[in-house]
């Protein structure tokens, strides 16, 4: 059998047209790419622990996503940036190699990352929502927060924090009061953290350059009541009040500090609250109630 060049051209054109038709049929037009879900019914405050690092080039992308999520959910979403991942991703507090820059990684950060299930071969940024999602990438945070925020919570947290000290210019401590109330008897762990926002120091960007005055927000600065918190037995409809004092470190900016408190058990985070640390003095301390 002899085949002519014209036969080949005809066959090729037919085949290409067929495939083009088949593949084009799958296209989703721009007007049809989004399905709007009903706004989440906010029933609790959700905690997003974001494991991040100053040497993690993709972490600023995650920070932008967090900004979008905070704009969407406001105070009902608490995000904490836990600098971790070792020297490959982050800079330790006081690291002498990084003279002139502030390292934001504290030792507890590595423990929290390990406890969350981080394994060799994984990368940052990565996060967990209410300690129920497991470690998930940034493209899944929205989905898990949407689902978690509409779940009922039995726990209510009241939180206030203020700077304490003789010298208002150099406060020595933060005084913290946490109130926990549950609709039923409940054994929980209460974890209290100090976070700081507005920290301007180095961060690697997605284009590989370094920004020396990148503004870091919601950075975990200290654990107040131990790495795993304090066990508390709640009696139904009774408020348990716990007070703490946390020394202010010289490297912190007292005006930019916040306190995060959350109650958790084996089923994850049951409720969370956050309050800005007030400057104490004649002003009434700020108090947050989350339910």
């Amino acid at each position: 059998m002899n085949i002519k060049i014209s036969d080949i051209r005809l066959l090729s054109a037919a085949a290409l047209s067929t495939v083009a038709m088949l593949t084009a049929c799958n296209d989703i037009q721009e007007s049809n790419r989004y399905r709007e879900l009903p706004a989440a019914e906010v029933k609790r405050t959700v905690l997003l622990e974001e494991f991040t690092g100053q040497l993690c080039v993709n972490c600023p992308i995650a920070h932008e996503i967090i900004n979008e999520l905070k704009a969407q959910y406001g105070d009902r979403l608490i995000t904490v940036g836990i600098h971790s991942g070792g020297d490959a991703f982050s800079i330790a507090e006081g690291d002498p190699i990084w003279t002139g820059y502030q390292g934001l990684r504290i030792p507890e950060g590595e423990t929290y990352l390990s406890n969350a299930g981080f394994k060799s071969g994984m990368g940052l940024p990565i996060g967990q929502v209410n300690r129920t999602s497991g470690l998930i990438d940034r493209d899944e945070w929205s989905k898990f927060i949407y689902n978690e925020i509409s779940r009922d919570s039995e726990i209510e947290i009241t939180l206030d924090a203020a700077l304490v000290g003789d010298n208002p210019q150099a406060p020595e401590n933060i005084g913290i009061n946490v109130g926990l109330r549950s609709v039923a008897d409940n054994d929980v762990k209460l974890q209290v953290w100090i976070t700081e926002s507005g920290i301007k120091t180095i961060q690697l960007l997605p284009d590989g350059t370094a920004k020396d005055d990148y503004e870091h927000s919601h950075v975990l600065r200290a654990t107040v009541n131990g790495i795993n918190g304090e066990a508390i037995s709640l009696v139904g409809n009774e408020t348990a009040v716990v007070s703490y004092t946390c020394p202010v470190k010289a490297v912190w900016n007292p005006e930019k500090l916040s306190v995060v408190a959350f109650a958790y058990n084996g089923n994850g985070v049951l409720q969370a609250a956050e309050t800005h640390v007030s400057d104490g003095g004649d002003q009434e301390s700020e108090s947050e109630t989350n339910n």
Binding site: I28, Y34, E36, A39, E68, Q72, S142
Partner: peptide, 8 residues
């Protein structure tokens, strides 16, 4: 992120 829109 930051919306109630799910991708189709």
């Amino acid at each position: 992120p930051g919306t109630n829109f799910k991708l189709n």
